[in-house]
Amino acid sequence: MENAIISKEKLPELFTQIIAKNKLFAPVKENGFSLFKEVEKASEIDTSYVNTRVPPKSIIFKQTETLFHFTPGKKGNVEKIPEENEKIVIYAIRTCDAKAFALLDPVFIGDFEDPYYSARRRNSVLIGLSCNNPGPACFCTSFDDSPASIEYVDILFTDLGYKYYIEGNSEIGKKFLEDHKTLFDAASGEDQKSRDKVEREAIGKIKRTMKLTGIVEKLDGMFDHPIWYESARKCIGCGTCTYLCPTCHCFDMQDESTLNKGARIRVWDSCMYPEYTHHASGHNPRPARMNRVRNRVYHKFNYFPKNTEVFGCTGCSRCIEYCSANIDIIEIINKIGEVKE
């Protein structure tokens, strides 16, 4: 089964079926903002959102995670933790956040394999929900993606009002549709047309453009340009832009222990903090905010493309929406494009 329709009344039943066999993560509202959480019943899910504040990368690459346990001290010992192998379904992920996994995969599963990330990633099915009302700063189209791209998800749902249009992408996605087919109806040509119309309208709502042509090469020659001082002047170094970015993957590792038990924990970290690169000798290669803002921009628009041939940004707009100082990465990149060489 590839394309199908599900009426909204049948949706709770679909979730009940999913929950019976999987951990289901979906957007819920808490204290007025949306976030992905594990849900136990369909009624908890609330898809009336543009995007969640914290990206769903937190499901696969957890904000804090125990790597292993140990006996602390000079007669130490190591104790592995069991591998997680529960099946995960992530429902209503936006295409920008789903793409972020495609960008993170080569980082976590490359020369070395991060077993925590890779186990959850292998066990997860991504069900996308087309973004019918992109936010004011969204710019996924600048990367030739669309708010209704199917490329990075296993299954894509598109809201057509009283029903959803469903497309299966990967083998996993098609099998998933097969498994739940009693809930679906075949999609008609009309349905297909409505879906495409919804997508066109959504694209039309995206107002901002990041000009990316030639930016990798342009940045090669801009490392010492005064623009970095100017761009970083307002930055207060809060780290929000990196914590909320779906493609940021920096982490710290810390030992936590009592007298006879301990664990090595990893936690999200941010390259926007001076401590991040501070050497024990006292030297800091990125001592000023200028160095750190520059590194964030280069990482996404120069280093990432050099290492994996894609930009390390999906246009999700979180770093723009939530920056405490109104720093706007689209403006920075477009300004760089305009600098005369």
Partner: peptide
């Protein structure tokens, strides 16, 4: 460089 993961993932030593 300051290091944590040692394997090119934690991002710190670039």
């Amino acid at each position: 460089m300051r290091m944590k993961c040692g394997i090119g993932i934690c991002g710190r030593c670039n």
